[in-house]
């Protein structure tokens, strides 16, 4: 987590336009959003959004309260980084030559990534982890030449067995 960043886990109604409502609220209220991830939950009536936003405590409070006013927002949780499992997903297409291939594959292994596409002159790898880990990986392999990068926003769940007591 970078300075001033915080994680919101937002349970929302799963229908058209909800993403626009949420992202629109952020831009309208002049809030910063660093990443947003959304997909349907085990209950098809609801989606869960994981939002990484930035701002001081006052901003954090305003974002939470303003989100809470939206009719489609069912539950908001502010997750503390220490008690949260946070994962980002990276797909990276890297330029390879016969000479560099070995070193790249080795670095993928060190970062516990996987090669998902293999060509003569390129490799596509996936790496999962916290933001810093992915940053470090990208920094390392950038020397070989990055052809394409695709990085998903963070997913987050609270640690421990306590289930999400959402008020569905």
């Amino acid at each position: 987590m970078k300075k001033g960043q915080f994680i919101l886990s937002v349970l929302v109604a799963n229908h058209a336009g909800v993403l626009t409502r949420i992202s629109g609220l952020f831009s309208r209220r002049n809030f910063n959003i660093d990443s947003l991830n959304v997909a349907v939950t085990e209950d098809p009536l609801f989606s869960r959004m994981t939002i990484i936003a930035r701002g001081d405590e006052a901003v954090q409070e305003q974002i939470t309260k303003q989100l809470d006013k939206l009719h489609d927002v069912k539950k908001i949780e502010l997750l503390t980084p220490e008690k949260t499992v946070l994962r980002e997903h990276l797909l990276l297409k890297i330029k390879v030559t016969k000479k560099t291939r070995g070193e790249i594959v080795e670095s993928v292994n060190i970062f516990r990534g996987r090669v998902v596409d293999f060509n003569l002159d390129s490799l596509t790898v996936e790496v999962t982890g916290e933001s810093d880990k992915l940053d470090a990986f990208i920094k390392f392999v950038s020397q070989f030449g990055i052809l394409e990068m695709c990085r998903a926003g963070a997913l987050a769940v609270k640690r421990g067995a306590m289930a999400d007591d959402s008020d569905k």
Binding site: G17, T20, H71
Partner: peptide
Amino acid sequence: ITGITMPITKHNYI
């Protein structure tokens, strides 16, 4: 119009 009025309504529907 739902897109247009999103930031100026409490809620809207199509």
